[in-house]
Design a protein around this nucleic acid. Structure first.
Lengths: 400, 400
DNA sequence: CCATATAGTTCGCCTCTCGAATTAAATTCA
DNA sequence: TGAATTTAATTCGAGAGGCGAACTATATGG
């Protein structure tokens, strides 16, 4: 049960019921497609007459199309409905520290086109280039009608102003991405933190029917996208989810954020690289400056795959600390599922059992969550941007 | 935006709009009472005709009464509406380790009667006694029409079965409280964890218009009631909020839960008592067995008020660790407000600044939350039980 | 060919909001 | 004092939308 926010509420009009039932229909079609009107009525407990009217409306608006006729043992054959893949396109943009990827997806989050560009240090110029590329992409596919743009990035978005507040790994600060993108494309733009986008992707495109989920992105830093009661936790002005900067080692290594012993100092890719460097050069006691090129996390992963004991050990240390942080989330939030996003999932056979073990040891809960690694090929950050736009039409109506 | 849960959703009927607007009206009346129909229309942006019909309905159902006529500079005088304090009673029961308190409150959460009883070790017998007392209370006030019963207790309630799973400080396990209470009173019973009840109390009766809040109960243990987007965080099967058992001291003191270094081992009342005992008997090195009666937390508080340095020091240590745990919540959830419930608020002048300082030092957030001590006289655990029942009629409608 | 079963449509009824018109009751000003 | 003005509240017809019974369309099987 939610309390009605009297500073920002919505009363019902005569169209409210239709809005609600329309959204339910869209979701049922999305989940069960292809599906007949009669089955929709059965699933929704709406009258068949009501379903017919709504279906007609959705077909007219081209959200839905009527496909093949189905087959039943007796009686008139059903006419199947499904989401209109042809018509509607959603543009998703995933900005990451090294590379920015974007593409056009249909309502089933299948990408028709995909392009990318190295992310630049200078935001203004980069955004200008991105706008041009997006505008060209749209011109190249004029047959698609575009519903909106979703953007994910490794930083905080202010809830009120919808501006990027700070993206440490990009070095961007106080950037208005929405205005230039909307001007260049004429579409409405939704901005979201990458970990939140991953949580959305999992909830909307994953195969769990889940309302309580945590998505943890492990890369240079650590981010947490938290889903509670089917909604993202944004906190005061969008600052929630910074579990990467929770202290897990008292008086530990200093973090860029100024504090000591932050989770991401021990459980991120950089942490594993650091562990590995320490193990391979113990005589230098943690000073990584060296003439040889510093190993990357990719190197550590590859070495571990090849069976290098010190690389494996570094990953094991990383896994241990991932578990320590997750145990905290499990104890406090009791999610049904935790999804792990990041290169580290490539070594899941090594790190997974350790993480599960630590969580089991350290968390206090009556029901332990499933820990699920995501396939990097599924591009969770990019898929989440599609969910960002999809939400506006498929999400629960805002009422009261 | 929420995702529609297709395993458990609700379509709209012709009455849905009325249900929504009715709830909005009830809330507007609650907040602005006394208020005229015309002002309700202005606040809600509903037509005056619609407001009149809904008001008439609410009056007929005796949720609302028409009070004095108001005064405007020109024109016809408004007829003020307010919640019907006379008619409706809600029974609240707060079960605490030593004492169980209950009473009857009106729609404004003002208690008309209040009684209490020492909590017994044996749940079956205790519940039977409680049932009898409640039933007698209702018979003694037959003029009140009772809307329901809310119960708060220091333990976990399973979301699905609505049974008490485990209450460590009561020693109760797998207890069905709902059935006996419903049978004895004929009313529907809502069960909730005490920290969650405190969060509800603050959101419904506090003077913040707030959707993101954490209520932390500090007593023998520590509990956290977390409110996100105006809803309680219950997590998988109701297990969320156990932040008291998050590890904050690596390899620290063992907790009853089996883990080491749990927050509540360092920041609860018992922890302060332990700190004090250690300081006053340093030669015994933490073995509290002694011929003298062991000091209680109340003793420590009193000694600190009298200026005893070792008692003050114990509270300061406690405050330090409260801050450490809160910093974690602030970093991860970014609530607008944190309310502290417990005897420790009596020494807020001593502990408050320390807590705030630690949070400021250790948390990573763009907007720092207000830390608010609650007045123990306001009985947050008991008031929360009223909110539990109030929610059913004043909460946002469940739709889609 | 007809009974039966299933899909989908049509239509009158009911609930609910909207908005204009109307009624009610106060103040101000001529 | 009485007309004009202002604000509150009600009345009533129109339109949106869901309900449910009746009806049409189309299949299978005896």
């Amino acid at each position: 049960m939610r309390k009605i926010d009297l500073t920002n509420f919505q009363v019902a009009t005569s169209e409210t019921a239709r809005d609600i039932n329309r959204r339910v229909m869209l979701n049922l079609i999305r989940q069960h497609q292809p599906i007949s009107r009669a089955d929709l009525a059965r699933h929704s407990r709406l009258q068949r007459s009501t379903v017919s009217v709504i279906a007609e409306q959705l077909i007219k608006e081209r959200w839905v199309t009527e496909g093949a006729t189905g087959h039943v043992p007796r009686g008139r054959r059903p006419r199947f409905l499904h989401l209109n893949k042809e018509r509607i396109g959603i543009i998703g943009v995933a900005i990451r520290p090294t590379q920015t990827t974007w593409g056009v997806a249909d309502l089933n989050a299948h990408f028709l086109v995909q392009e990318s560009l190295p992310t630049a240090k200078d935001p203004e110029q980069f955004i200008a280039t991105l706008c041009m590329r997006l505008s060209n992409l749209m011109k190249a596919h004029p047959e698609i009608s575009y519903e909106g743009i979703g953007v994910s990035l490794p930083g905080r978005v202010d809830l009120a102003t919808q501006k990027l507040v700070f993206a440490p790994n990009l070095g961007w600060r106080d950037i208005d991405l929405i205005t230039p993108l909307e001007q260049a494309t004429g579409l409405s733009v939704e901005l979201e933190n990458a970990a939140n986008a991953c949580a959305l992707a999992e909830v909307w495109f994953g195969h769990h029917a889940i309302g309580n989920l945590v998505a943890v992105t492990v890369s240079e830093g650590i981010g947490a996208g938290i889903m509670v009661n089917g909604q993202l936790v944004r906190g005061s002005s969008g600052a929630a989810g910074e579990f990467g900067h929770v202290t897990i080692v008292e008086g530990g290594t200093q973090c860029k954020c100024g504090n000591h012993g932050c989770w991401e100092m021990y459980a991120s890719n950089s942490a594993a690289v650091h562990f590995y460097a320490q193990a391979t050069a113990p005589q230098r006691n943690g000073k990584p400056n060296d003439a040889r090129p510093a190993p990357t996390f990719d190197d550590v992963l590859r070495l571990a795959e090849q069976g290098a004991p010190k690389a494996i050990e570094a990953l094991q240390q990383m896994a241990h600390y991932i578990g320590v942080g997750l145990a905290l989330l499990v104890t406090g939030l009791a999610p049904d599922v935790i999804v792990i996003v990041g290169e580290v999932t490539r070594a899941w056979a090594q790190v997974g059992p350790i993480i599960e073990q630590i969580i089991k040891e350290r968390s206090f809960t009556y029901a332990s969550p499933r820990i699920v690694p995501t396939d990097p090929a599924s591009q969770p950050r990019l898929r989440g941007t599609i969910a960002l736009v999809l939400q506006k039409h498929f999400g629960a109506p805002t009422v009261a």
